[in-house]
Amino acid sequence: MCDQIQEYFDYVLPLVKRSGEELLTAENYEVETKGFVYDLVTIYDRKIEEILIKKIKEKWPTHKQGNEINGINKLTDDPTWIIDPIDGTANFVRNLKITCVSIGLVIKKEQTLGIVYNPFLNELYTAIKGRGAFLNGQRITTNGQNDIAKSIFNYELSLARRPKHYELYMYRLKHLMKVIMGFRSLGCAVLGLCYVADGRLDAYQCDGLYPWDAAAGVLIVREAGGYVCDSRGKEFNLMDPNFLATSTKTLSDQFMAIERKADEERVNARNVKSEFVP
Rank of each mutant, 00 (worst) to 15 (best):
V221Y: 14
L173F: 14
S158C: 04
V267N: 01
P241N: 08
F120N: 08
K97Y: 14
I83C: 10
V93S: 08
E58W: 03
L113C: 09
H165E: 14
V267R: 08
P14F: 03
R266F: 00
T112K: 09
L209P: 01
N271D: 11
N136M: 11
K55S: 14
Y8N: 07
D202A: 14
G35D: 12
L96I: 15
K108W: 06
F236Q: 11
K234S: 14
M170F: 08
I43R: 06
L186V: 15
L13V: 08
P163D: 07
K108D: 12
P14M: 00
I180H: 15
A262E: 05
R46W: 01
F255Y: 12
D253F: 00
A149N: 14
I82D: 06
F120T: 07
Q138R: 08
K129W: 03
A215K: 06
Y204P: 01
I72S: 07
L40P: 06
N122I: 00
N91G: 03
I82G: 07
G217A: 11
K108V: 02
I82C: 10
T99K: 05
V179A: 14
R184M: 12
V218Y: 07
W81V: 08
G114H: 06
N143I: 10
G233F: 07
L209C: 15
E275H: 09
K97L: 12
Q111T: 10
D253H: 01
V93H: 05
D84T: 10
E32C: 00
K174S: 15
I258N: 04
I82H: 09
Y204E: 10
P61E: 00
D198N: 15
I53A: 12
D213T: 10
A127Q: 11
I220T: 11
I152G: 02
Y117V: 01
L135Y: 08
I128M: 13
V179E: 15
I115Q: 06
D45E: 03
G199M: 12
I69H: 14
L15Y: 09
S151W: 02
L15T: 06
K47F: 01
C194I: 11
W81R: 09
I107L: 11
L209D: 09
R232Y: 13
Y195Q: 11
Y227V: 12
I69D: 13
T246S: 14
V190C: 14
L13D: 04
G217C: 04
D147H: 14
Y44N: 07
I53S: 10
E223H: 11
E167M: 06
Q145L: 01
